[in-house]
Each structure stands twice: as structure tokens, then as C-alpha cells.
Amino acid sequence: MSAYFSEIFRGLQSLAIGMGITFKEFFKPVVTVSYPMETIKMSARYRGHIELIENEEGEPKCVACGMCQRGCPSGCITLESTSVEYQVEEKGETKTKKKKVLSKYDLDFTTCSLCGQCVESCNFGAIDFSKEYNLASSRKEDFHFDLLKRLKERNS
């Protein structure tokens, strides 16, 4: 009989302790932010979708070697290049040389897994993760990024 009552007593006591804890939590500072009115700054290593990096002249650093395209597990990168001729002065004579210039760099973000394989495989430091996370759309096409165009828009 006494066990019965002591259990009731202990039960009520445990509930009171729980109530006390939740009551104390009322006076703790708020830890959430009211997004989208407030936003948090992303950490330096946050992985958003990839972005082309430019050199001092504002041109993409990318030399269109295609390593990132080959390394990507999901095949989200499509790049094309054109070869342009340019003149160099060498030992007094003018020579015509050819080089590859990036003409298209498309990212299909719908299948990207943000693994970092592309950033890692680039030997020229030409791509990096952006800090973009406000991405929402009901259309798939909105996640097909033309990175070259984005780079130009950033510069203009």
C-alpha cells in the first residue's frame, strides 16, 4: 500500500521537476532568427553551388581542361571551348599561337551533390563554392546555371 502511494508521490515529483525545467527555459534568450527578415552569415567553407573564379583581368581563370567535368560523379558540368589565335613577340618575330578559351560552362545544380570533387580536381583554382543558399523554385530550369554569364554579370 505504501509503495503505491510513494509511486504516486514520486511520479508527481518527476512531473514537477519537468515543469520546472520547461519554466526555466521560458527565460532563456531566443536562439532562432526570423528568416527571411534576418539571415545568418554562412561560414567560410559553406558549400553552395560552384562558381567560376576570375583572374585580375576579370576573365575566368578556367583553361577549359575538362578535369572537373570528368571528375564529377553526377555529370552536372558541361563545358565547351573555342580556340582563338593570338600573337606573341618572341625573339623579335611575331608568332601566331592558339589557345583554348572557355565559351560555355553550364552547371546542372539539380543533380549536384556538393561533393567538392570538381573544386578538388581543378589545378588552376578556377572554381569554388559560392555562399548561395536562397534557392527555391518550382521549375527545374531555374537550377541550370550558366556560370560564365553569372561571372560576367558579377563583373558588370
Partner: peptide
């Protein structure tokens, strides 16, 4: 522990 583990329910 106090809030949940000890809780009678």
C-alpha cells in the same frame, strides 16, 4: 535526465 528520463509517464 531530469526532464525526460525521470519522468513517470
Amino acid at each position: 535526465d531530469a526532464l525526460v528520463t525521470g519522468n513517470i509517464i
